[in-house]
Amino acid sequence: MCNKHVPVRKGSDMHVPDGFLDAPTSVATAAVAVAGVGLALSRARRELDDRTAPLAGLVAVFVFAAQMLNFPVGAGTSGHLLGGTLAAVLVGPWTATLCLTVVLAVQALLFADGGITALGTNITLMALVGVWAGWLVFVGLRRVARSAGPKVVPALAGVAALVSVPTAALAFTALYAVGGRAPIPLGELTAAMVGWHTVIGIGEGVITLLAVGSIIATRPDLVHGARGLLSARPLQIRTEVPA
């Protein structure tokens, strides 16, 4: 089975459909999402300038494309990139929140991927928890490995991306504990969600490492997460012809 029309596919990994969570929980996550995205709209301005804005657009498109590519993780299960850490390291966490929000909104409204009433939940889990958990782990690792310079940024991003996936899964479990509509033993749910999403996180880490690595290799000056690491290097004169 390799196309997207298998009836069982109602959504993608970590895309919560309508009906999993009760109305109060959905309203609460929608409020969190509105507040988070609102804050991101004002803060992202600091991260975006004429140079980085086009990269931010590209990052959103890449996350959308990569989320279509479910990879098998064994036992008849698949996963796909969440992309929060990848986006945060490349263009900054506030801008990453906006990138993921655009992707999730288009997926829900156009492709019936992720519920409409669950859009706030999905933004909370992927555009807020996924992005910020990954970014904070990345910043922590970068502090430890600062002397190694920009070369280690892709590896640090990969590790942070791995951690971000089970973290987002844990956040879903917490929401389910509060507002899940079907009664499920919480211990079992937590173990299954975190277990499978740790395996999916390995794929997340590898894709993030490769994607961040490709930009670090070509234009390290554009990578938000490498700032400060680059300033320690001597300036070099570039003879660039504007396109």
Partner: peptide
């Protein structure tokens, strides 16, 4: 060529019955 298997959340939701 993307995998058509249920994803992590779907898989868990099927297994645990929600």
């Amino acid at each position: 060529w993307a995998s058509g298997h249920p994803d992590g959340l779907e898989f868990v939701a099927e297994k645990l019955g929600f």
